[in-house]
Design a protein around this nucleic acid. Structure first.
Lengths: 334, 334
DNA sequence: TAGAATTACGGAAACGATTCCAAACTTGCG
DNA sequence: CGCAAGTTTGGAATCGTTTCCGTAATTCTA
């Protein structure tokens, strides 16, 4: 039925023969309305094709039933979709909508986006980055609850959820060890970002725990691209005593490593096992053989962020700094 | 400066020694306000840290300064990010925000999402799908201007923008012909969707235009995955007279084709040129050699959709059905 | 069955902007 | 200088809800 745009709560009241207060109570599922009145109000609502105007409600209650989501680079990776999806799934269940703004990391835009969201009385803002890093936020954002996804502020004064990279690095390496490998290469990114540092730490720790020594020449740093992975892999293969397995910083580097391995006539995983990080479906699942990879839990980070915002846990004295486990996605490369 | 949440237009009026009407006029850049009053109002605004409440404005004007964006599968491909990005870039320039809902193609959710957006007085809705297809929409969506992105309705009663797949198929094939190839394979998807049908048509037409015959055995239909592409490529390579170039339905199939080609000891592009469709950066740019591919113009479709909605072109008698060109992205595989 | 306690209900006031009309003030021109 | 035309200004009315308070109706208790 085509809804009429001009039906108000007052029309409903009249039609149902009740007062506007009662209509409002029905609309909001308040108690203290008799079954029969509730019924007749509901009938009037469908008969007249009433639609509640969110703006009026928001004006009166100061709640917009919306949360903001600010991202830096929504278009470059498929990660963003997962964060949005996670946040939305929980927001929706609580009748909230997502206001999305992509900023390309432009701080002017970030500030005005925040301002705009504040004008709209968002109940909180999720600030998500596409790679794990430290951020500095516009001042105005602190006027509303904020949760950081995949990033953090220097002083840890805002709640944040990031992947547990160290544990991921550990788990990846341990997985190789458990599969019998004793000489394990690490093809790492050559820029010092949290992912690079922490995965490396995890790698070392797993070696130590497994009773294996740390060998400097097994670790090669390169650009985080296929070509970097390719070069690094070649270097490892030319070692007097090459590794039998390699842990790659990300799927793209692994992709390059694959090429180098195949080029040498070696087989994956028989001659060389490969594990990597990010689990970009598009790559990992489509490589041949399927690439075992540590998943970045974007969907769950998005969920957690929305839950935290909407749960009013935000009054805790300290801002929680969550590290979420990265699940190991097994395919055929180990 | 920390804004005070309780400052209203009336406080500004008082502080600046003017009436509320004047403040409103300043806020909205209306003419007929003397320079000096305008100035003093603006000063009062910053001094008091005033922030306009969007809900009040929306209530009075019935305009929310927002447009809705409904997608089917936001998380599975990186395409969504581009559509959002495009739509947002133009929306933002006009002070509009995006309300995003992902539905996983659940029609119940689609309807309630629409309802929710209508309650919020969105000025229009963009309905975007992740692959080019026909859709049926919830009835209620027609109460507001709608634009379809990457999809269309059977009766063409709603404005729609889709990639020009036929022209893309034509351009891809023609590109191979222009590079001297006379025997060109086509590895196509084995499901009859618009992309499959139209790219095929383009392929035929380009052959005809180029004075080349259409040879049935050069066209192989398979699952649109790497393994499908792999199988298809092997089949083509075992032909008595194999092609010297191949056009793949998408990057994933091309990926499989790459494997088959390399496995036979052939070189790309010397022994076999490859061109494909979709231009998924993550794949096409990272394959070795870089994969030449027809780009799906998601960003521009998003832009166009938002522009159309906000431009009030929506009163045209007939709903435009736009087909947007897919640019050829050259890399090293041809 | 009276009176207390509880539940159901009606409607004024408030949320904070925009819009419109009338009034006050300028300016221009013969 | 006087009047018309134009510009600037103030503020009441309005948008459509929710909330709150007082009253009416009902149920409970002894």
């Amino acid at each position: 039925m085509a809804r009429n745009r001009n039906i108000t709560i007052r029309d409903i009241a009249q039609r149902a023969g009740v007062g506007i207060g009662t209509v409002s109570r029905v609309l909001n599922n308040h108690p203290n309305v008799s079954m029969s009145t509730r019924q007749s109000v509901q009938e009037a609502i469908v008969e007249l094709g009433y639609r509640r105007r969110a703006a009026a409600k928001a004006l009166r209650t100061r709640k917009s039933m919306a949360i903001g989501l600010i991202t830096d680079f929504i278009a470059v990776t498929p990660f963003a979709g997962n964060v949005i999806c996670g946040a939305q799934d929980v927001a929706w269940r609580r009748d909230h909508l997502l206001l999305v703004v992509n900023t390309n990391a432009d701080s002017i835009l970030e500030e005005s986006a925040t301002e705009n969201m504040l004008e709209r009385d968002v109940e909180g803002i999720i600030y998500a980055t596409m790679w794990h890093r430290e951020v500095t936020l516009p001042d105005n954002i602190r006027e509303v609850p904020v949760v950081l996804v995949n990033c953090f502020v220097a002083d840890r004064s805002l709640p944040s959820i990031v992947p547990d990279e160290r544990r991921g690095g550990y788990a990846a390496t341990e997985h190789l060890i458990r599969n019998g490998h004793r000489r394990i290469g690490f093809i790492n990114h050559n820029v010092e970002i949290p992912a690079q540092v922490l995965r490396w730490e995890g790698y070392r720790k797993a070696l130590a725990t497994g009773g294996l020594g740390y060998d400097d020449e097994l670790v090669v740093l390169r650009r985080s691209e296929p070509s970097g992975g390719y070069e690094a892999m070649r270097q490892l293969l030319h070692l007097p005593q090459p590794p039998t397995a390699v842990f790659c910083f990300n799927d793209r580097m692994a992709m390059g490593a694959y090429d180098a391995i195949k080029e040498c006539g070696l087989k994956i995983p028989q001659d060389m096992a490969v594990i990597s990080y990010d689990n970009q479906e598009l790559l990992a699942a489509n490589l041949h053989p399927g690439l075992t990879s540590m998943e970045l839990p974007h969907y769950h980070m998005g969920r957690w962020a929305a839950e935290y915002l909407l749960d009013d846990l935000r009054d805790r004295e300290v801002a929680p700094q969550i590290m979420l486990e990265c699940p190991l996605i097994e395919r055929q490369s180990v």
